[in-house]
Nucleic acid binder design. Structure first.
Length: 955
RNA sequence: GCGAGAGUGGCGGAAUUGGCAGACGCGCUGGACUUAGGAUCCAGUCCCGCAAGGGGUGCAGGUUCAAAUCCUGUCUCUCGCACCA
């Protein structure tokens, strides 16, 4: 009977591991430690996807390998369980989100256990656990209780915030408001991205090109009171500390790009308090202002009589021929002259109505309107017109720019559109790709570095020197200062969901029951703030108002010391729970602290963090931000949470061939098909829609660069693998794969497909292939013809032959080096070679078989345990020492060396390993094939690399 | 447009201090065993060629005794960002 049958072997060992608590992690490590973390999944109703086990298998291999090397391993798993789908399900069916969530978690847990991962399940947690979000709320209180000291670059308790005298003179309420303005968690009334379809407000990051990232629904902007987290305060540290991390350069680049640090200068342009009838500031006032600035210096906050701008190119100040302020800029109304009022008002209203989608869509053509007012360019005293245009964003820099059309593409387009002067102030010289004459004539835009012209005393300065010089000069005159800006925005931290962590915040009510604008934090010892138990779920949610506004009054309203309060009804975003779960895993049941400091110190940081690249920016940036705040408070001992990060590549569906047919079901070659604006395939010649038709692999053949129909070689077909999706019907279900081939085969296949970080197409035949390998390993060791589990007769307590020994140690060396490099695909290939070799051996020494089983066990743990037992061991192999290789066993007495003539391979010679140059050369010349090619030629040069190759250069 | 990464057989991929291109697996071809085969085993499988030989790592150049690997240019694809002043 005993053919390899994963359906019996796998559940048996899963039960064994659970019963013996095989993978329990110690409270603190004994000796060397490794903390290996998977990005915990959102337990969706669809269950596990084959993408999940890819990263999970990789980390599981590392953990099992490290246990065998005597390392203390922390390897936990949990659930990122808050999220919109459960709430939408509740709206449809009335089922409480917690019920749905628990059901989904149970399914995920079953699936993960089915795959044999060596998690310490006693540490399991879900972000929806009340005890867990009690701690999440605690961290929020800390964020609320922190201000960022820019001097020290550190978060500090709000009680240490210095209060300016003029504020403290105004009284206690003013002080509280001042503090509230400086907290890391603060509230604003801001236009938010309301998505009616999803019934929620989205973060900027969740809106892609004006539509929701999930679902692609339209998003409109409406004002709402929101909680924000001041992540921008930590931008500098978040960027700088990337350097210390063992992350791929591409992920670091993504984060740097997202943070988007730029250095430049802020400059104040004088506009005056009351412009003249012509819209221009009074020259005498301007002169007075210049003198005041020279004496008083550059103020921290701009006065009302200036327009403050940010530029990365202060060297182009002389070329600024107009200015632009964003439609939302607070000065818009003030700067609008009566004659322009209607036009400006209309323009701003339209801009406000526009969704981000519209703004992006219309990006091709610049729009704007003149305010009628002018500002004075501080370098030459010239008045320049101020425009309102939506290509300037209120959320970046100061929301206002100086426009230099000659040297900025956007300004150039705008100036061309509206006929504004273009003055070149940077001479491109011999720079490539531009015509110097055209640039100097204002007919072509030039945005690179060059040499200053038309810039008064600065003429002749190279761009970089000019930048430095003018920044100093402006600072000396009190007109500007060097400044740093970030693309990163503060984090919109509230959501209009029921199914999220409630904020531990109360809003003060006045006698009429209206919000006073003052808030009060719930003390840490009174946490958690649980969600209301009784809750009705509406199927319609047509307003952006949070569902918790409909919560029972006894939850929503609180009276403390006779004062009435209303609970915050927003909830936290899903990101909140995933910001710190790696800490809670270390000490999941601690009721006193987030994590015991002794335990935290012993296990942190996470040594290996594996997950999808889709979290390269947001999750990782948010978690790093929280970690740094906790670090500033002394709750954690490391500046960064995740030392090494690896992103597994996406697994695509099976490779597909796609042909195209027109309305008459006639084939259209893929070369004649393009996509239209709506993304549909159309014919290049007729522009008619064509239909994509799936073509079987058997019906196509390779021709040249691509594939064509076998029946009609004129018709090219597309060949590619697509992202798995329900709509495409190419989703692979892990349950089915396990049923058909077993968990070990699934694990092995996912690792064998290719490098962990690469994007790879699925292939069911490939799974079958690795299953064949496991079958061969089984037959190599087990006697299949026997009814009992019996060793194959070839497995004997015998000495290894030299060749067997070499094979064994070669394999140990390669597999060990590969797992250290996380090159699992080649490690598996080496074990396949080992198996192919020993299957041909009549005697398979037991010790060699045991070592293979140990090496295979991280990849295919169930079958390995089963074989280990058959080989005569009573206990799990999880803590057996990892095989060591013997370098002396690798040495061969002779080696085959290629011989080239003119760089072309002409023969191979077998020589002693230590053959010297002369011996190699002689042996090479003696080879008949080589001799043939040398005959009648003169040897000009002989290259001999001992142990590697010989090359003759002849004439 | 900007940034990052990648182009190697029919397919997934291996080989990177420059040194035998195609490890390993799939698929395919032929054979053995068999009532049967989607089991197993054996042999073959980069392309052209009967062979000798020639060609070959997206394309075009270059460096070198020797290039998938280094340099220059170029094309294509994937991912991310996208009016960030």
């Amino acid at each position: 009977m005993p053919r390899y049958n994963p359906a019996t072997v796998e559940p048996k060992w899963q039960a064994f591991w659970a019963e013996h608590n095989t993978f329990a992690a110690p409270r603190v490590p004994a000796g060397r430690k490794i903390y290996v973390l998977d990005m915990f999944p959102y337990p969706s109703g669809d269950g596990l996807h084959v993408g999940h086990p890819e990263g999970y298998t990789a980390t599981d291999i590392v953990c099992r390998y490290q246990r065998m090397r005597g390392t203390s391993v922390m390897h936990p798993m949990g659930w990122d369980a808050f999220g919109l789908p459960a709430e939408q399900h509740a709206k449809k069916t009335g089922t409480h989100p917690r019920t749905t969530t628990e059901k989904n978690i149970a399914n995920f847990r079953r699936q993960l256990k089915m795959l044999g991962f060596s998690y310490d399940w006693d540490r399991e947690l879900a972000t929806t656990d009340v005890d867990y979000f009690r701690c999440t709320q605690f961290i929020f209180l800390k964020l609320f209780d922190t201000w960022f000291d820019a001097e020290q670059q550190k978060g500090r308790p709000i009680s240490e915030l210095p209060i300016p005298d003029d504020v403290s003179e105004e009284g206690e309420e003013a002080v509280r408001r001042y503090q509230d303005e400086h907290r890391l968690a603060y509230q604003i009334e801001a236009p938010v991205n309301w998505c009616p379809e999803l019934g929620t407000v989205l973060a900027n990051e969740e809106v892609q090109g004006g539509v929701s990232e999930r679902g692609g629904y339209p998003v409109i902007r409406i004002p709402l009171r929101q909680w924000m987290l001041r992540i921008t305060a930590y931008a500098d540290r978040l960027e700088k500390d990337l350097e210390s991390l063992n992350w791929s350069e591409s992920i670091k680049a993504l984060q740097r790009n997202w943070i988007g640090r730029s250095t430049g200068a802020e400059v104040d342009f004088f506009i005056g308090m009351t412009p003249g009838d012509d819209g221009k500031p009074d020259q005498r006032q301007y002169q007075g202002w210049l003198r005041d600035r020279e004496l008083g210096g550059y103020p921290r906050k701009p006065d009302l009589d200036v327009l403050r701008i940010y530029t990365t190119r202060p060297d182009t100040l002389f070329g600024a021929t107009y200015m632009v302020i964003a439609p939302e800029h607070p000065y818009v109304a003030r700067l609008t002259q009566p004659g322009q009022a209607d036009a400006v008002k209309a323009y701003c209203e339209e801009a406000a109505r526009k969704s981000d989608l519209d703004r992006t869509d219309l990006a091709k053509e610049k729009t704007g309107v003149f305010t009628g007012s002018y500002a004075i360019n501080p370098v030459n005293g010239k008045p320049i017109p101020i425009w309102v245009a939506d290509y300037v964003l209120i959320s970046y820099g100061t929301g206002a720019i100086m426009a230099v059309p000659a040297h900025d593409t956007r300004d150039y387009e705008f100036a061309a559109e509206f006929g504004i002067d273009i003055v070149a102030v940077v001479d491109p010289g011999e720079a490539e790709g531009v015509s110097r004459d055209d640039v100097l004539a204002g007919k072509q835009v030039f945005t690179e570095l060059g040499v200053a012209v038309n810039s008064g005393e600065y003429d002749g300065l190279p761009t970089n020197e000019f930048k430095k010089k003018i920044a100093e000069d402006l600072a000396a005159k009190g007109l500007g200062r060097t400044a740093i800006n970030y693309k990163l925005r503060d984090w919109l931290f509230s959501r209009q969901h029921f199914w999220g962590e409630p904020f531990p915040i109360l809003h003060e009510l006045d006698a009429d029951g209206n919000l006073t604008g003052m808030v009060r934090a719930i003390p840490a010892e009174e946490l958690p703030v649980d969600l209301p138990a009784e809750m009705k779920f509406d199927s319609t949610h047509a307003s952006p108002e949070p569902p918790l506004e409909q919560a029972p009054a006894d939850w929503l309203y609180v009276t403390i010391d006779g004062k009435k309060y209303k609970r915050e009804s927003n909830s936290m975003p899903q990101w909140a729970g995933s910001c710190w779960y790696y800490l809670r895993f270390l000490d999941p049941k601690n009721s006193e602290a987030l994590v015991d400091p002794e335990i935290e110190k012993a296990w942190m940081p996470v040594d290996l963090y594996v997950g999808g690249a889709e979290h390269a920016v947001l999750h990782l940036l948010y978690a790093r931000f929280w970690h740094k705040v906790l670090y500033d408070w002394g709750y954690v001992s490391t500046a960064e949470p995740f030392q090494k990060l690896v992103n597994q590549g996406m697994i695509l569906g099976e490779m597909e061939f796609t042909g195209y047919q027109d309305d008459n079901e006639q084939w259209v070659s893929a070369g004649d098909v393009k996509t239209n604006a709506a993304g549909q395939p159309i014919s290049k010649t007729t522009n008619d829609l064509v239909t994509a038709v799936k073509v079987e692999a058997a019906a196509v053949e390779k021709q040249g660069e691509g594939f064509v129909l076998k029946d009609n070689a004129q018709i090219r077909v597309d060949s590619r693998a697509y992202k798995m999706s329900k709509s495409r019907g190419n989703v692979v279900n892990p349950d089915e794969v396990v049923r058909e081939y077993g968990a070990d085969s699934l694990r092995l296949y996912e690792m064998f497909m290719g490098p962990l970080e690469a994007v790879k197409p699925w292939s069911m035949e490939g799974v079958n292939g690795v299953r064949g390998f496991l079958d061969r390993v089984w037959r190599m060791i087990v006697d299949e013809r026997s009814e009992e589990m019996t060793l194959n007769a070839a497995v004997q307590d015998a000495q290894l032959s030299d060749e067997q020994n070499r094979m064994l140690h070669k394999t140990i060396k390669a597999v060990t080096e590969d797992v250290d490099a996380m090159a699992f695909n080649t490690a598996i290939a080496r074990m396949m070679e080992f198996t192919n070799f020993f299957l041909k051996e009549d005697v398979r020494p037991r010790s060699a078989m045991e070592k293979l089983v140990l090496m295979l066990s991280p990849y295919a743990p169930h079958v390995a345990e089963e074989l280990w037992r058959l080989l005569g061991h009573d206990d799990t192999l999880a803590y057996e020492p990892w095989p060591e290789y013997d370098a002396s066993a690798l040495v061969e007495s002779t080696v085959e060396i290629p011989v080239q003539v003119q760089g072309k391979l002409r023969g191979r010679i077998r020589v002693p390993v230590d053959a010297d140059q002369a011996a190699l050369e002689a042996a090479a010349k003696a080879d008949p094939k080589v001799a043939e090619h040398l005959e009648g030629k003169k040897i000009v040069k002989t290259v001999v690399v001992p142990g590697r190759m010989v090359n003759f250069v002849v004439k």
